[in-house]
Design a binder for these strands. Structure first.
Lengths: 189, 189
DNA sequence: ATAATTAACTAACAAACGTTAGTTTTGTGT
DNA sequence: ACACAAAACTAACGTTTGTTAGTTAATTAT
């Protein structure tokens, strides 16, 4: 039962092109050509070029949001929660690296309500993450540094992992998780 | 003696727009409007839109390259060299954040020889950084983990610092350097 | 076999794109 | 006041952009 609709195919092909050149530099004719059809034919399946971006980014953003919600429900220490979040990011990186590229680089090209709800989700996600770090500091599990520096250092690494993961040929996900947790939490020294 | 030529003004204005929307999503008419002139007038000062991108990115890339060269010449331990490199990135982030955005996000829109020499500089830079990490591991100063994970974790944080630095209103550069070095080298635990 | 649906096609649109040519305005030094 | 250079202008160019309309071919359901 492999049901990939034509629309999903288009979105997938488009996401690969977006990853390479960015949303604005990819024309609908580029997408069509990559699928071996004419540009106009795309519009039997999609409403607009915008819709592709919207689906790509918002679906993934909801993915992050629900992942965060699940972690927050668990009865874990702050440090263990951060570990879970690192694993969440890595899982998403491995499975949705193209959508992740769009989310990272092209979110500002969303329009109207889409842009608003994305920004909101992103803000909430970061705020939740920050809360976990604060709690970790309060409990003495995390160094008493400005939470913002810690949050940023972890998030920026996780967010750009997709660039690096494809380059360094698919190493084992579980090894990667272990190493990332070690480096991000305990440093390199 | 403040000599900012008109060309430099254009490049600076353009870089701010590129930072917000990316090279491809900014038209020469956008740039002109931001300067209060007509698009055609830009061409009294620049050769092409491409030239703006080229100047922005390659100048900065050479900046990184020479910074790395200086660090390599110093008689320092690997760990101290990494500290210097972190400081180099932070200095560049503070002073050239717009060009840094272009370098990070729009380098793939360089053409011909520019693209080749950028890619080469970037590769060399990373290879030098990797060498320092390897040496640190050899000397037992750095944890014996895959150098690639360490390199990536540090570089991705430093490369995206510009996004975060502007948002969290200009905190003191020296404090930032200290905190970044601490977090990146010694972790958060 | 026929009807209905799906998905491709050609042709064209108005708008926006980077850029060129030729001209006029603005500012500076003599 | 005049000459010269710098920097703006208007007008237009050929392309490319996202998208629509209308039509045809291919597939599936009855």
């Amino acid at each position: 039962m492999k049901t990939t609709t034509r629309k999903e195919e288009i979105i997938q092909v488009a996401s690969q092109l977006f990853k390479e050149k960015g949303y604005s530099a990819v024309s609908v004719r580029d997408i069509a050509e990559a699928m071996g059809i004419k540009a106009a034919s795309l519009y039997n399946h999609i409403e607009s070029k915008q819709e592709i971006l919207s689906v790509l980014i918002l679906d993934l953003a909801r993915n992050f949001t629900s992942g965060m919600a699940q972690v927050l429900e668990l009865e874990l220490s702050p440090l263990q929660k951060i570990e879970k979040l690192i694993e969440l990011h890595i899982d998403i990186t491995v499975n949705y690296s193209e959508a992740l590229a769009a989310l990272n680089n092209d979110w500002m090209h969303l329009q109207g309500e889409d842009l608003i709800s994305f920004t909101q989700m992103r803000e909430d996600y970061e705020e939740n993450f920050r809360g976990i770090i604060r709690e970790g500091i309060r409990l003495g599990q995390i160094q008493s540094r400005h939470p913002e520096v810690i949050l940023f250092s972890i998030l920026s690494t996780l967010r750009t992992l997709y660039i690096w993961y494809q380059k360094r040929g698919k190493l084992d996900v579980n090894v990667l998780k272990k190493d990332m947790v070690a480096v991000l939490l305990r440093g390199i020294v």
